[in-house]
């Protein structure tokens, strides 16, 4: 297969992956964030301590997390049809991807929010802040760097899940690699797709790390974080050179 033949296939597949992962990430973040915060607030000693809610939500999240994605996709078929009117294609794949992404992201949110210093919560309580104020002005903003990192992890996990969307005709890069590489023994296209995926994932990880670090390091120095990142590497590289 020549490049001119591959190009439209890759373009089409990239577009499908973008649609599937983009929408499902959006839904996972919008629904997973409140769920993760709720897990922290309802926990023992939390601001809205409620053992029943905590146990139920925690259990649902655990089941959602441990379910293999391909099974989740099949199990959710009737729900998917109810939402999108079909069970095949990229749109239909968004539903199980989003449902799979929600508990994944919720657990990451829970961990990130738990890291926020309890003293800050106490400080805002002492000012007369309500629980909602604490969530809005303390928990989420203070956990933001971790939440950005969690979003990056979720995007990458969903790209992985989306490879299985091919089984319902969702398309995407993963599906392209499976169809051409595994089913048609076109290893050339497969390797190109795999390399392309690797580059995309690295870029997403880099962008996510940069954003998280920028927020985390905010106010710790004068120079722009992106610039400092490059500067910081230079002396480190020089040191390695000396040792060698």
């Amino acid at each position: 297969m020549t490049w001119s033949e591959m190009q439209p296939l890759l373009e089409q597949a990239s577009w499908e992956t973008l649609i599937m992962v983009g929408w499902s990430t959006l839904i996972a973040v919008v629904a997973g964030l409140p769920l993760g915060v709720l897990l922290v607030l309802s926990d023992r000693g939390g601001l809205l301590q409620n053992v029943v809610v905590n146990k139920v939500v925690g259990q649902v999240v655990n089941v959602g997390r441990s379910m293999p994605f391909i099974i989740l996709m099949v199990a959710l078929m009737s729900f998917t049809r109810w939402v999108t009117g079909t069970t095949i294609g990229s749109e239909a794949a968004i539903v199980p991807l989003a449902i799979g992404g929600i508990p994944f992201f919720a657990r990451l949110v829970e961990t990130a929010v738990r890291e926020v210093d309890g003293g800050l919560v106490e400080a805002v309580q002492s000012m007369g802040g309500s629980t909602w104020t604490i969530v809005r002005k303390v928990l989420v903003p203070e956990a933001l760097p971790s939440l950005i990192a969690s979003t990056t992890t979720t995007v990458i996990a969903l790209i992985g899940y989306s490879a299985m969307a091919g089984t319902v005709g969702g398309g995407g890069l993963g599906d392209l690699a499976v169809r051409y590489g595994y089913q048609r023994f076109d290893t050339g296209l497969m390797w190109i797709t795999v390399a392309f995926l690797a580059v995309v994932i690295s870029l997403i990880q880099f962008a996510g790390d940069l954003a998280a670090r920028t927020l985390h390091r905010r106010g710790r120095g004068g120079a722009a974080p992106a610039l400092r990142l490059l500067k910081a590497k230079e002396p480190a590289a020089a040191d390695i050179g000396k040792v060698a």
Partner: peptide, 12 residues
């Protein structure tokens, strides 16, 4: 109220 560890919001 003021605190031993200041409890300032680092993002602000």
């Amino acid at each position: 109220m003021v605190f031993q560890h200041f409890n300032l919001l680092s993002a602000r």
